[in-house]
Structures are given as structure tokens and as C-alpha cells.
Amino acid sequence: MKQSMTAVLERNTTFTADFTTEPYEVAWAREARWFVRTLELDGEAPSLHLTTQISPDGLHWCDDGAPEQVSGEPSLLSWPVREFGHWLRLRATLRGGDPKAKVLIYLALKS
């Protein structure tokens, strides 16, 4: 039987500035998929831009090279990640006037 795990990295958290999620170790996993539930998105033409980041050590990070995902309204976004090494996190930027986003962020992993 293969292994699987879903981790909730942010839970109903409200952000008013750019953020990154906490480092998460995924060396055991072959595939990963982000699920980002934007519960609320407020401000003037607000948008939430999400980029997968990878790391050799959980300390130093770079983008994984895949296109960023954009949430412009309350929604559920999902995208897969492959060949990611041992660590994953999300880098999020908020755009618009006085943007505010309330999110749930899931990382679904399988061996």
C-alpha cells in the first residue's frame, strides 16, 4: 500500500501582506498537490498570487519554475507539483488596494 498524507498548512488565516507557508518535509512523497481555498478576498481589485517553492534544506528557497496560480475571488484552486526534492512551501503575494485574503491551504501528498 502506498503512503499518503494531507497537511493543513494554513487554517482560516487572514493575510494582509505577502507571506510564505511554513517549511514542510516531503522527501518520502513522489507526488504533491496544493489545494488553496480562498474563503474571503477583500480590497480594491484584490488578487492572490501563489508560487510553489522548493529548498535543499528548509532554510533557503527558490521558485520551482511552474507558472504562478492566481485567485481573484473566493474559490478553490488546485495544481500538482512533481520532482520537488525534500521540502515544499508556498510563496504568496497579495495585489490590489488594501488587499486581504482569508485562506485554507492544504498539501496533499502520495508516495
Binding site: 518535509e25 522527501a27 534544506d57 532554510l59 525534500h86 521540502w87
Partner: peptide
């Protein structure tokens, strides 16, 4: 919780 390989820099 994480399944960690105890990776260090």
C-alpha cells in the same frame, strides 16, 4: 506533523 528525513543544511 511531518515525516522527516532529518535533512540539514
Amino acid at each position: 506533523p511531518q515525516l522527516s528525513a532529518c535533512d540539514f543544511f
